[in-house]
Nucleic acid binder design. Structure first.
Lengths: 200, 200
DNA sequence: GTCTATAGGTGGATAGAC
DNA sequence: GTCTATCCACCTATAGAC
């Protein structure tokens, strides 16, 4: 058995395939056999890298959150204005949908009732981390007068995340990614971002 | 085999249980055995009423949409103001969550990639019907100056539905139904509804 | 690290008696 | 309309050879 945080070539390829499957189909709608087929290995080999599906799920979320947080850090390093940061943030969601995927944790939120406890906690942590980053951006933008919104920043942050997750689901159901774009524009406008449709 | 639209005592009890299971767990996370157990009948009997799981799924959505549209009609009959209608509308979502359920079609939107074609169309129809009703309310409220929002009513309607669906998912993940309430209040405020927190 | 082989369980679905 | 009995495909997981 490999060390618990090993990231061998093979195990990361396994995570790549599993991630895609969960983002497209959900946690209860893919199997070790699906991954094995895609990688031309056996399910027994998969169990060497990830002893149970629950463990695979945990590592999946951990990796997803890490790369998501890395993307947020990249935004912090390349954008100065709060409005620019928010536009880059919603851009992440749009880019995911354009690869014909949903947010991993959005899918897992739908599967929530059937997830093992450890996975549930990881999902919650992902959303909490998102909210935390957004609150920082919103507070900064509000002080600047760059943004204009009422109520606690945490509420606006939560609404933004929820709306983006929901809009992804509906955009896919309608086979129309532009629905996510227009929802995102509408949301940013509502936070006081200028230079977008209907901004005044 | 019963006529395709039969609604016997038993088949409606089957739909009741299946509906609850889908709302809580999703379409790929419940089985005929689950329903059989709950109703103290065999899975063979279930197949008499619903020959396949796909057919059961179709009937489930049809019934859900019917009762949802009936609820919207009830709102039209009991509320005059657009703001009152919108508050009643979001109240439906809140009531569902408080019964520890998700929106049936929100769950199915997450399962979308794995659904049979007929079910996909039913899911889309559900959301389209919601949007249609909301557009009517929004247009009316906008003319009245009861509501204040920018852009096409259809965009605001889509955003409202998407945000409510997403907020339900996140509220459940956090074990905190009040998150849906505050998201709903925030959304209504954004549409220009008065008498709510932070309205000005 | 990957394989063959297999266990033990559950999935949706059917045949045919009552 | 409901049952018993059964089919076959698939699921996660394990043992043990290489």
């Amino acid at each position: 058995m490999p060390p618990p945080t090993a990231t061998s070539e093979t195990s990361s390829r396994i995570l790549d395939v599993a991630e895609r499957l969960v983002q497209m189909r959900g946690f209860n709608a893919f199997s070790y056999a699906d991954i094995a087929r895609a990688l031309h290995i056996t399910t027994a080999s998969l169990h060497y890298h990830f002893p149970t599906k629950a463990k695979l799920g945990e590592r999946l979320i951990q990796r997803y959150r890490s790369s998501f947080l890395a993307a947020l850090q990249h935004i912090d390093e390349t954008c100065v204005a709060a409005t620019a940061k928010l536009r880059a943030y919603v851009g992440i969601y749009i880019a995911v949908l354009e690869r014909n995927r949903m947010c991993l944790c959005g899918m897992l939120a739908a599967d929530y009732a059937t997830l093992p406890k450890a996975m549930r906690e990881e999902v919650r942590d992902f959303f909490d981390a998102n909210e935390e980053w957004l609150v920082e951006v919103l507070q900064h933008g509000h002080k600047n007068k760059e943004l204009a919104f009422a109520g606690p920043p945490a509420e606006s942050a939560r609404l933004l995340v929820a709306a983006l997750e929901g809009a992804m689901l509906l955009a896919r159901s309608h086979g129309d990614p532009s629905r996510l774009r227009s929802a995102a524009n509408h949301l940013l406008t509502g936070l006081g971002c200028k230079d977008l449709a209907y901004a005044s």
